[in-house]
Computed example of a mutant assay.
Amino acid sequence: MRHRSVAELMTPTVVTVQRATPFKEIARLLKEFDITAVPVVDGAGRPLGVVSEADLLRRRSGNGATTAEQLMTSPAITACPEWSVVRAARVMQRHQVKRLPVIGVDGRVIGVLSRSDLIQLFLRHDHAIQVEILEDVLSRTLGISPSAITVDVDDGLVTLSGTVPRPELLPIVVRLCQSVDGVVDVDNRLTVAESA
């Protein structure tokens, strides 16, 4: 069982700006590329901060900033390509940001992961979720026969019914199912086998 990585979901083409990029050029880039923010990078392509639509709107309200360096939110909150999307989502939530520049081993920006990229996970087909739970979670990871548990998936809601061989497996099965990409919630109707 494996979570998808940031590298699998990020947008690999990145629009960046330099410290001295003027306000109007940043606004033009956001509109032209239909994006909501741009990383500000140094001469080597390493992130210094991010300028978002909100930063531009703050400037309009009279803070006098005219360049990317003056407008940006700094330091840039970044992600690594090998991170799981779960880790990236937690970082976004903790720092209350909508996107993360993705940094390669050399420290340069190689992509951007946005909240809209993460939403793709919840568009995963129910059948793919069901197969992963039956084959990866139950069979391979826990050694539970898929015939012992019925897994129904409807719009990402997983309903588990049937029996587990030992009581301590109940919370483990639920937790592992909740961690499968695309699962919105788990309705646990499992019981413990009488012979347990």
Rank of each mutant, 00 (worst) to 15 (best):
G162R: 04
D154R: 02
H125C: 06
S52G: 09
S179W: 00
I110D: 02
S195F: 12
H127L: 15
V102E: 13
T13G: 03
I119R: 03
R166M: 09
I35W: 01
S114D: 10
P39V: 03
T73P: 10
R108S: 15
N188A: 00
D187L: 10
L142Y: 08
A79Y: 00
L157T: 12
V112P: 03
I26G: 00
R28A: 15
P22M: 08
R94D: 05
A128C: 04
E53Q: 14
T11L: 04
C177N: 07
L160A: 05
V85A: 07
V173A: 13
G182M: 02
L113V: 08
V131L: 13
T150P: 00
L57S: 08
V91A: 09
L30F: 01
D187R: 07
T66W: 13
F122V: 09
R124F: 03
T163W: 00
V51R: 07
I119M: 11
G64W: 15
E25S: 09
V137G: 14
S84H: 09
R87W: 01
A68Y: 05
P39K: 02
V192E: 08
H3C: 04
L123Y: 08
A44D: 15
D42V: 03
I144F: 14
V109L: 06
L123D: 05
P75D: 15
M72L: 06
G43N: 07
R140K: 11
Q120D: 11
I133E: 08
A65C: 06
Q130K: 07
A79G: 05
T141Y: 15
T78Q: 02
D154C: 03
V183A: 06
T163H: 06
D42K: 06
T67D: 13
A193M: 08
V91M: 02
D106A: 11
D181G: 09
R28W: 13
V180D: 12
S195I: 08
V151W: 00
M1L: 14
R4M: 15
P75M: 14
T159V: 09
S161A: 05
S5L: 12
L169C: 04
F122T: 11
D42R: 01
G162S: 07
G64L: 12
T13E: 07
L71N: 02
A44F: 02
A27N: 03
D154F: 02
G143C: 01
K31N: 12
V180M: 08
H125Q: 15
L121K: 05
Q96G: 09
M92W: 10
I129F: 04
M72C: 07
L29W: 00
L118M: 01
G104E: 10
V184A: 01
F122C: 10
R46N: 07
A20E: 12
L56N: 01
Q18P: 00
A196H: 14
T150Q: 11
V50I: 14
P75K: 14
Q96S: 12
I144N: 13
Q93N: 04
V38P: 03
V97C: 05
V17Y: 11
G107Y: 12
Q96K: 15
S74T: 15
G104I: 09
G45K: 06
A128M: 13
V153D: 02
Q178W: 11
D126G: 02
P12T: 10
L170N: 12
L100N: 04
Q178P: 03
